[in-house]
Simulated scan of single mutants.
Amino acid sequence: MTAAPIVPELTLITVLVAFAGVFLICFLKGAFGGGFAIVGIPLLSLVMDPITAGGLLAPLFVAMDLYALRYWKPNTWSRPDLVLLVPGLLVGIGAGYVLFRFLDHHAIEIVMALVTMIFVGLWLASGGGVVIRPRSTPKAVAAGLASGVTTMVAHSGGPPLAMYLLPLGLTKEVYAGTTSLFFTVGNATKAVPWLLLVQPHGADLVLMAICLLAIPTGVGMGWRLHGLLDQRQIFRACYALLTVTALKLLWDGCTGYLG
């Protein structure tokens, strides 16, 4: 993958659309703890290509995560799950970097989309309730690994993590806090390889600085929404976002082959 400038031309439309996309991602991070960044990427893709959007977002994710931790404090982290998940995440990011540079990553998007849709379909078939399952080390390691690969390849590490955490029956605060810290580690790690793939300069840095202004309001408004929703509503919203994410991944993967 060759480096490319992040923003070919800094126009008012580019600034407004990028700001809106970053705000949406921050809002979802405040409401659900993270993992649904790909939902906001289509907005950025209106004014730049997806690789460019990824390069723009990589350092911004770190700022979003650090700010979100003021809401998702240590008492909202499930440490036993993070201990199992994070090592696989780090290995997955490294593997995702190799795949991104040397292999066709559209197949990963399609497979992840199909697996996510099956997961949501099984949840719907069971009546849409929360079926509590015990913690599993192999499942946690696999979820961390898959999340690392997909967060590096498509900024979409949320589905594998959600498929592991949602059935555990965590409270909505612990679910969101655990997700938030998980992606704080992941986004800080993948920022380095993303900045190697896409090297920002000049107007790119100006756009990043402008988008930073969306973080406090976006995260704060999302956190307030989280407080208004009960446990069942939060989990239903997570499954709905998983569906949207799966459809976006499927679209990206298929159009990548057609294009």
Score class of each variant (00 low, 15 high):
1 M>D: 04
2 T>N: 13
2 T>M: 03
2 T>L: 10
7 V>P: 03
10 L>V: 06
11 T>I: 02
19 F>S: 14
21 G>V: 04
21 G>L: 03
26 C>H: 01
29 K>C: 02
30 G>A: 09
31 A>N: 09
31 A>G: 10
37 A>C: 02
38 I>C: 01
40 G>Q: 04
42 P>E: 10
47 V>M: 05
48 M>E: 11
49 D>H: 09
50 P>Y: 01
51 I>T: 14
51 I>E: 13
52 T>R: 15
55 G>R: 02
58 A>K: 04
59 P>H: 03
61 F>T: 04
64 M>K: 00
64 M>F: 01
65 D>T: 03
70 R>Q: 11
71 Y>Q: 08
73 K>G: 05
73 K>A: 13
74 P>Y: 09
77 W>E: 03
80 P>D: 12
87 P>C: 11
89 L>F: 11
90 L>W: 07
91 V>G: 05
92 G>R: 09
92 G>N: 10
93 I>H: 07
94 G>H: 10
95 A>G: 05
96 G>W: 06
98 V>M: 11
98 V>P: 00
98 V>Y: 15
103 L>S: 12
104 D>V: 11
106 H>E: 12
106 H>P: 02
107 A>V: 15
109 E>P: 00
115 V>R: 06
115 V>G: 12
116 T>A: 05
118 I>T: 11
122 L>S: 04
123 W>F: 12
124 L>A: 14
124 L>Q: 12
124 L>T: 00
127 G>H: 07
130 V>A: 12
132 I>G: 00
134 P>H: 01
135 R>M: 08
137 T>V: 14
138 P>R: 10
139 K>S: 13
139 K>P: 00
139 K>D: 12
140 A>Y: 07
141 V>N: 04
146 A>H: 01
147 S>M: 05
147 S>C: 09
149 V>Q: 10
151 T>F: 06
152 M>H: 09
152 M>C: 10
153 V>N: 11
154 A>L: 05
156 S>D: 04
156 S>K: 04
161 L>V: 15
163 M>Y: 06
163 M>L: 07
164 Y>M: 08
167 P>T: 09
170 L>G: 05
170 L>Q: 14
172 K>H: 10
176 A>K: 11
177 G>C: 08
178 T>S: 15
180 S>D: 10
183 F>R: 08
184 T>S: 14
185 V>W: 03
185 V>H: 05
185 V>K: 08
187 N>W: 07
189 T>D: 02
198 V>L: 07
203 A>D: 15
207 L>G: 03
210 I>V: 15
210 I>L: 15
211 C>S: 11
213 L>Q: 01
213 L>E: 01
213 L>I: 14
215 I>D: 06
215 I>T: 03
218 G>C: 04
220 G>A: 08
221 M>V: 12
224 R>C: 01
227 G>N: 13
228 L>S: 14
229 L>R: 06
231 Q>N: 11
233 Q>C: 03
234 I>M: 15
234 I>Q: 13
235 F>K: 13
237 A>H: 08
238 C>T: 09
238 C>M: 15
240 A>P: 01
242 L>V: 06
243 T>I: 10
243 T>Y: 00
243 T>W: 01
244 V>K: 06
246 A>Q: 07
248 K>E: 15
249 L>N: 12
250 L>P: 05
255 T>R: 14
256 G>R: 09
257 Y>A: 03
257 Y>W: 15
